[in-house]
Design a protein around this nucleic acid. Structure first.
Lengths: 366, 366
DNA sequence: CGACATCGTCTAAACGTTTCGACGACCGGT
DNA sequence: ACCGGTCGTCGAAACGTTTAGACGATGTCG
């Protein structure tokens, strides 16, 4: 296998000239460059990676830490991994894959052996030990998702408030005059998870701005409670067996509490669901079971699902977390940390709306 | 960040002594080793990866090329990737992830820049350009799956014949006296795909050995034809609208052709399905639709599914391609190629049976 | 016509390992 | 007492780059 010395010899120059010619870091004479190019082609020269790492200041490798939690939706997860690899390649970076069991040990190893220039952290959870580790390692890193303590870290995530606002806008624009948000289980909000709260706040705030009454309900994970919560919302009052509506916040246009009577004319016709896949499915079942059809009777939007809503029956409009968008940005930020210093921050990616036909004008009678 | 010189200085020895102490490649005095260990701990020394690659003969990195074809079942795919990474780590190897769009270019790049010591090729198809590339690169490599031309390559795959035989044994042991195999579409066999054919052959051969009549039918992908094929098999004769049974091969215990009359007492009660996920689902629907229950009326085994059969209704016994088994072996073979030379070969992994309760004794009356 | 920047190239010093060969110390066998 | 062998250690040469510094040659501007 040819090395840079061979190229230099064939081209009749010194190795540094070859190096400069290839990197372009110093001007090289026209004829010389041509001779070098020719030699490179003739010898099929490709710089040795180890030599490059050692001599240069970069390894051109990023570590990607991607836990495979059992609650992960595999296709989405794969899409993220793929997106990171693709984005990294666009910057001439390769990606070293670290898995769950190696999470902290692996990060320590690859960073203190200087095998990687930086770290991309996928699927960040609220209390993610990798966040603290990355901070303490002081290695360039970009997290996709925001940990509980994001101080000193570079994070990328969807703009949840904007996503919620977008959902509200779509529904209001379609003519809906009463909205509901079915959220995560109570525990999620109490744990202080970032996004569910930001989504909720964005939802209520934009509804208030648009002058439309909106109700927010937390939804537990088991089917009866899901059905009860939906019932409570649709009936405009505590209706579920579990009294799920005690978890509800009703707000009028001015932000005040609004209590609809059962069967009230103000029952929401625009529903946003910000929950997990299973919850969506049960809700769809229950809606069908009640003889309501989407979007004729009810318009439904899936808020920031990490799964595929197009295979639901019916398919749901959604505002998904788009892998490519956040991964591209995360890689960019990682690369930028290597030269100019990027100050720590949480960077929000603009939401995009995926139309699958589950939103329409409300039935005139309602 | 401490380097080997620092360790040597603190321990009061030369760097080569440190290196030998850490690698164990030469005997080192007791006290000296202790001093070195102490210095390593004190300085939190970890060898620089680039230095190691350059000085040594290994990079301690494998490339993993994993296409993400759209017909891939994501959870299985992820399981393979995970299994490779885990297996590699057990040999102190890291894994560099190459994706589809980089398939050949990436392989060329990482191997000729000597960034990796070897290549693990996942999800190998019959005509896989990566197979030829790997052969021509002459880099240590292990393929999981067998390409059309496996000459000169090291491959690992499930033992499909043994898997089929295992399925037959289970059914015959349970008391079934007439079996059927529902296979892939005709085109798959005509294309010369290795495993479907080997599975079929193993199935028919073992059935003959056990003295049980068996019928094999190719099944196209669209629902009506799937139903027709199943109908043809269950009715023991051409029964499907499409005449699907013309694709059938009926064999008696001696290997001769056996033509059951419609509704014959010899209609198969033990069914093996070696096809894709969608086909399985339609078959299960059709079985339910005919008022047959599993395993009371019919015993069904999924042959080498790459997807999860435990979520089917009912769950199906299966003989899956187990990621960990093949990946562990592939990594082992890759590692072995680095020192002792491993001669090219196709290595078959023994099948394992996953019981989900879809096989039982046939109804006495049948 | 000097002063001075710029261009093009080279020499040489890193970068951090591994590993070969050498060498003294010590041991057992003759 | 001598020889061969193993043990423990060291010095030095790789491995293949990048890059700072030096140095003529060439061009520009006063």
């Amino acid at each position: 296998m040819a090395n840079i010395h061979d190229v230099a010899r064939v081209a009749g120059v010194s190795i540094s000239t070859v190096s400069y010619a290839l990197s372009g870091k110093r001007p090289i004479g026209e004829k010389t460059r041509l001779r070098i190019d020719e030699a490179v082609r003739e010898l099929d020269y490709m710089p040795n990676a180890a030599g490059r790492m050692l001599g240069g200041t970069r390894t051109r490798i990023f570590a990607l830490t991607a836990p495979l939690r059992n609650d992960t939706y595999a296709p989405a997860h794969m899409a993220f991994v793929l997106a990171v690899v693709t984005a990294a390649r666009a910057h001439d970076y390769d990606v070293l894959l670290l898995t769950e069991d190696e999470a902290t040990g692996g990060l320590r190893r690859v960073s203190s052996s200087r095998l990687v220039d930086g770290i991309i952290v996928l699927d960040v959870s609220v209390n993610d030990e990798r966040a603290d580790l990355v901070r303490s390692l002081g290695v360039p890193a970009a997290l996709i998702g925001v940990p509980g303590n994001a101080e000193g870290l570079v994070c990328v995530d969807l703009d949840f408030e904007a996503a919620a606002a977008l959902a509200v806008d779509r529904l209001v624009d379609a003519g809906h005059t009463s909205l509901a948000l079915l959220g995560h289980p109570r525990a999620v909000y109490e744990r202080g998870s970032n996004f569910p709260m930001r989504f909720r706040d964005g939802f209520l705030a934009r509804a208030a701005e648009r002058g439309v009454p909106a109700v927010f309900t937390m939804v537990e994970k088991d089917s009866p409670q899901i059905r009860a919560a939906l019932g409570g919302v649709l009936d405009g009052a505590p209706g579920g067996a579990e009294g799920a509506a005690t978890d509800s916040v009703h707000r009028g246009a001015t932000g005040g509490v609004h209590n609809g009577a059962p069967g009230s004319a103000h029952a929401p016709t625009g529903i946003v669901v910000h929950a997990e896949e299973g919850v969506h499915k049960v809700i769809l079942e229950e809606i069908a079971h009640r003889g309501l059809s989407i979007p004729a009777d009810l318009s439904v939007i899936a808020g920031v699902p990490t799964f595929d809503t197009s295979s639901f029956t019916p398919a749901l409009d959604s505002i998904p977390l788009i892998p490519v968008d956040s991964c591209v940005r995360a890689v960019e930020l990682a690369v930028q940390q290597l030269d100019g210093t990027v100050e720590p921050r949480v960077e929000l990616v603009a939401p995009k709306y995926r139309d699958h036909g589950s939103v329409a004008a409300p039935r005139p009678g309602s």
